[in-house]
Amino acid sequence: MAEAPPRRLGLGPPPGDAPRAELVALTAVQSEQGEAGGGGSPRRLGLLGSPLPPGAPLPGPGSGSGSACGQRSSAAHKRYRRLQNWVYNVLERPRGWAFVYHVFIFLLVFSCLVLSVLSTIQEHQELANECLLILEFVMIVVFGLEYIVRVWSAGCCCRYRGWQGRFRFARKPFCVIDFIVFVASVAVIAAGTQGNIFATSALRSMRFLQILRMVRMDRRGGTWKLLGSVVYAHSKELITAWYIGFLVLIFASFLVYLAEKDANSDFSSYADSLWWGTITLTTIGYGDKTPHTWLGRVLAAGFALLGISFFALPAGILGSGFALKVQEQHRQKHFEKRRMPAANLIQAAWRLYSTDMSRAYLTATWYYYDSILPSFRELALLFEHVQRARNGGLRPLEVRRAPVPDGAPSRYPPVATCHRPGSTSFCPGESSRMGIKDRIRMGSSQRRTGPSKQHLAPPTMPTSPSSEQVGEATSPTKVQKSWSFNDRTRFRASLRLKPRTSAEDAPSEEVA
Results as ranks from 00 to 15, higher is better:
residue 1 M to L: 15
residue 49 G to V: 12
residue 83 L to Q: 03
residue 84 Q to P: 14
residue 86 W to R: 14
residue 90 V to L: 15
residue 91 L to R: 15
residue 92 E to G: 12
residue 93 R to P: 12
residue 96 G to C: 08
residue 100 V to D: 08
residue 101 Y to N: 06
residue 101 Y to D: 00
residue 103 V to D: 09
residue 104 F to S: 05
residue 107 L to W: 09
residue 109 V to G: 07
residue 110 F to L: 02
residue 111 S to R: 06
residue 114 V to M: 07
residue 119 S to C: 09
residue 138 V to E: 07
residue 146 E to Q: 05
residue 146 E to K: 06
residue 147 Y to S: 09
residue 148 I to N: 15
residue 150 R to G: 04
residue 151 V to D: 04
residue 151 V to G: 12
residue 151 V to A: 10
residue 152 W to C: 01
residue 153 S to T: 06
residue 154 A to D: 09
residue 154 A to P: 12
residue 160 Y to H: 09
residue 160 Y to D: 10
residue 168 R to P: 07
residue 170 A to D: 05
residue 173 P to H: 04
residue 180 I to N: 10
residue 181 V to E: 06
residue 187 A to D: 14
residue 189 I to V: 02
residue 192 G to V: 12
residue 199 A to P: 02
residue 203 L to R: 03
residue 204 R to L: 10
residue 206 M to R: 05
residue 207 R to L: 08
residue 207 R to H: 08
residue 214 M to K: 00
residue 216 R to P: 09
residue 222 G to A: 07
residue 222 G to C: 01
residue 222 G to V: 02
residue 224 W to C: 00
residue 226 L to M: 01
residue 227 L to R: 00
residue 231 V to D: 03
residue 232 Y to D: 12
residue 233 A to E: 15
residue 234 H to P: 07
residue 236 K to M: 05
residue 237 E to G: 07
residue 238 L to V: 06
residue 238 L to Q: 00
residue 240 T to N: 15
residue 241 A to P: 06
residue 242 W to R: 05
residue 243 Y to S: 06
residue 244 I to S: 07
residue 244 I to N: 03
residue 244 I to V: 06
residue 247 L to R: 06
residue 249 L to P: 10
residue 249 L to H: 00
residue 250 I to T: 10
residue 250 I to N: 06
residue 250 I to S: 06
residue 253 S to A: 11
residue 254 F to C: 11
residue 255 L to R: 00
residue 256 V to A: 05
residue 256 V to D: 03
residue 259 A to P: 04
residue 259 A to D: 02
residue 259 A to T: 06
residue 259 A to G: 01
residue 260 E to D: 04
residue 261 K to M: 05
residue 261 K to R: 07
residue 262 D to Y: 05
residue 266 D to A: 07
residue 266 D to H: 13
residue 267 F to S: 04
residue 267 F to C: 00
residue 267 F to I: 14
residue 268 S to C: 12
residue 269 S to P: 04
residue 269 S to A: 07
residue 271 A to V: 06
residue 273 S to P: 00
residue 273 S to T: 07
residue 275 W to R: 04
residue 275 W to S: 01
residue 277 G to V: 02
residue 277 G to R: 03
residue 279 I to T: 10
residue 282 T to A: 05
residue 282 T to S: 14
residue 282 T to I: 08
residue 283 T to P: 01
residue 284 I to M: 04
residue 285 G to V: 06
residue 285 G to S: 04
residue 287 G to A: 03
residue 287 G to R: 03
residue 288 D to Y: 04
residue 289 K to N: 06
residue 289 K to Q: 04
residue 293 T to P: 00
residue 296 G to R: 01
residue 297 R to T: 09
residue 299 L to Q: 12
residue 301 A to P: 00
residue 302 G to R: 00
residue 303 F to L: 08
residue 303 F to I: 11
residue 303 F to Y: 02
residue 304 A to V: 14
residue 307 G to D: 09
residue 307 G to R: 01
residue 307 G to C: 05
residue 308 I to M: 13
residue 308 I to L: 08
residue 309 S to F: 00
residue 310 F to C: 15
residue 311 F to C: 06
residue 312 A to D: 02
residue 312 A to T: 07
residue 314 P to R: 10
residue 316 G to C: 02
residue 317 I to N: 08
residue 317 I to S: 15
residue 319 G to A: 11
residue 319 G to V: 11
residue 320 S to F: 13
residue 321 G to A: 06
residue 321 G to V: 12
residue 323 A to P: 11
residue 326 V to A: 12
residue 330 H to N: 09
residue 330 H to P: 00
residue 332 Q to L: 14
residue 333 K to Q: 04
residue 334 H to Q: 09
residue 335 F to S: 14
residue 336 E to V: 03
residue 336 E to A: 12
residue 336 E to Q: 12
residue 336 E to D: 05
residue 337 K to N: 04
residue 337 K to E: 11
residue 337 K to R: 10
residue 338 R to Q: 14
residue 339 R to G: 02
residue 341 P to S: 15
residue 342 A to T: 07
residue 342 A to V: 04
residue 343 A to D: 09
residue 344 N to H: 13
residue 344 N to I: 15
